[in-house]
Structures are given as structure tokens and as C-alpha cells.
Design a protein around this nucleic acid. Sequence first.
DNA 1: CCATATATTAGTATTATACTAAAATATTTA
DNA 2: TAAATATTTTAGTATAATACTAATATATGG
Lengths: 131, 131
Amino acid sequence: MDVTKKERDCIVVIHENSSGFPLRLSDIAILMKIKPSTAYELLNRLLSKNIITKEKGMIMLTSYGNHVYSEIITAHRTMEILLTKSGVNSDIACSQMEKIDYLMDESSIEKILKQIGNPAKCPHGKPVKPA
Amino acid sequence: MDVTKKERDCIVVIHENSSGFPLRLSDIAILMKIKPSTAYELLNRLLSKNIITKEKGMIMLTSYGNHVYSEIITAHRTMEILLTKSGVNSDIACSQMEKIDYLMDESSIEKILKQIGNPAKCPHGKPVKPA
DNA sequence: CCATATATTAGTATTATACTAAAATATTTA
DNA sequence: TAAATATTTTAGTATAATACTAATATATGG
């Protein structure tokens, strides 16, 4: 399933802020710096793509949503490693990859990952394959 | 200047089909498989971004447009090389890069290019730095 | 000059994004 | 519990990119 840039950002925000307790719409609006009504529309698109669930206002990624997140983040971190290995500053590599990670093919990413020796972590120390 | 995906495709189509004589709107519409009125809108956006000129119906890239083309194609071919070096099939690498080449930072591309030894040609034998 | 080709304009539609303002629901607290 | 506050949802509007049909204008060729 394809996601847009904002949907991608929202998936990442949900995943990276759900450690303690799940987020509500208003939390997501704040984290994404958008108005609640804009968040509502965005979350509705993610709901209809079966990427999130909403239960009593608590928003969580579905298992499919978690899979989409993993694909995005693996692409992001794999390419970050590749770019930093080429001498690109890790923060620049990160902002560069934010723009395109969600557009990359999983199969290409897997091949690159193997070629660079299946590193466990990205330049920021985060796992290439999130749990 | 940022371009959209369709603008990117149009720039590439114009460059890669202007060897003999310049293209007209109707040629571009056919090459891009869109209706003339859609091509008209697209070309108007490129005109207002100073990427093309239209003289007596003949459409050409401006020098700035040529610069934008070069950046896109250098990113495309540099990353194609990187992907094929990792074992990605060259046609898959090409279609993968078509989606994202226009979104990549020139500075990151230059670093990668240097790191892989400034190859002159992409896997299809085309120059990484077009004339 | 006429016929055909090409380009332009007008109008409509869709998707993604984003806003304000109002209304409906929840939740909290006095 | 009722009132106050917070949150969510709905409605309406807007913009940009994309794309279409249909009509009109403008070239071009014979």
C-alpha cells in the first residue's frame, strides 16, 4: 500500500511516541504541528488504509501499520548508513532520507543491507530492523 | 527550485527528445501520454519556474532547466550505480530511482559519487554527468 | 482561402493538504 | 451530578497538482 509524505510522518510519530501509553488525536496534532481537524482527516486516511485503529480515542498502529513502519524505518536507516559511509553528515543523511524513505522498494533495500554487511544499527545507534 | 514528479518527467522527456529539433506541446503530450490541455498546464508551470521556454511553439529547456535536468540525472545515475553494485537489477534500480531522483540533495549525491570513485557511466552506459 | 492540425481556454473532477468555526462528545472537577 | 473544560467531529473553504472533455482560437499546409 502506498502512503503519502504526511501519512508517513504520522506513522513515524505514532510509533515513536507510543512507548508509554497510546496517543490521542490531539497529541498527534501537537506532535505534527497541525490543527486537530487536519489530524482528523489524516487519521481517517490511515484508518481507511488499515494502518491505524482508534479505540476509545486511543490511536495505535495495526499489525499492518507496524509492518509499514518497519519498512519505512529500515529503508531510512539502511540508506542513512550508506550515505554516511560516503561521507555525508549523519543529520543531513537523516533529513535527506526523511524525504524519500517511504518511496523505496523493500527488495532494493534488502539487497543494499546485505551488501553493506547487515549492520544492526544506524549512525544514530538505532536498530535498522526495529522490533 | 523544487519540481514535482510530473514536472521531473516532463523535463526528462524534453531533454531526451530534443536531439534533432525541438518538441512542440503536442509531441510532449504524446510522449507523456497525457491530453494536450494537461500538457499545457504542466508546461505553464515549467514556464513560470523558468525551466523551459516556448518560442513559436518550440519548447526548449532554459539553461536553468538544463541545470535542473543535470542534477536529476546525476542523482538518478549515481544511485543506479550504487544500487546495482549492491546487486539490484539495473532496470529495477532505474525504476526505483525514477521515483526519487528529483528529491535528492546535490551535495549528498556528489559525496556518494566521489566515494564510488567518480564513475563516468551508469549501468546502462549513459554518462553520470550529462553534457 | 480552406481544411487540418495545434494550442489555448473554460469548466469540471479528484486527491492531498490545511485552515476556521461550529457542533457534538467526553472528561474532569467542584 | 452539573458545570466547566477538553477533545473530537462536522461543515465549509482554500490551494496545488493532476487530468479530463469540449469548445474556441490560431497556425500551417495545400
